[in-house]
């Protein structure tokens, strides 16, 4: 059984596969994918997660809305959240951090940086 259950919330299948492919290099991780915020909340109600990686720009429910719901829910508010966006803009970063994101990654995501942030938040060795 995997020690860490990671949830990737991303509408682009290419990005989902890319993030998932990079994270599979870590030991003892299980990866679950969600296509938007609504799908992510459904997955969150079904199983426990150690970390969430969420894109900001998504249809139905964006990453920031998902983050605010997670942070206001006592069941999920301890789960570390990494926000991913295409824009390198400071405003989005600030919004995400204000809402309680633990880290922020800009696209194009560098695998080394992604693994560093994830292992840092999960306190595991890469």
């Amino acid at each position: 059984m995997a020690a860490y259950n990671l949830l990737i919330v991303e509408d682009s299948p290419t990005m989902r596969q890319l993030i998932s492919f990079s994270l599979k290099r870590l030991k003892n991780v299980k990866i679950v994918e969600a296509t938007n915020g609504v799908d992510a909340l459904k997955k969150l109600s079904e199983e426990k997660f150690s970390l969430i990686i969420a894109d900001i720009n998504m249809p139905l429910m964006d990453g920031l809305k998902l983050l605010s719901i997670i942070r206001s829910d006592p069941i999920y508010n301890n789960i570390p959240v990494i926000i991913v966006t295409t824009e390198g803009a400071e405003a989005d970063r600030e919004k995400g951090i204000k809402l309680g994101a633990n880290a922020y990654l800009s696209k194009p995501i560098q695998t080394t940086e992604l693994l560093k942030v994830v292992t840092g938040l999960l306190k595991i060795e890469n």
Binding site: P13, T14, Q17, L18, F21, S22, Q110, T111, T112
Partner: peptide, 17 residues
Amino acid sequence: VEDENNNLANLYVASYQ
């Protein structure tokens, strides 16, 4: 090698998609 590995992963995902 790590960089090369990451690059190959990106190329793999891109061509797979």
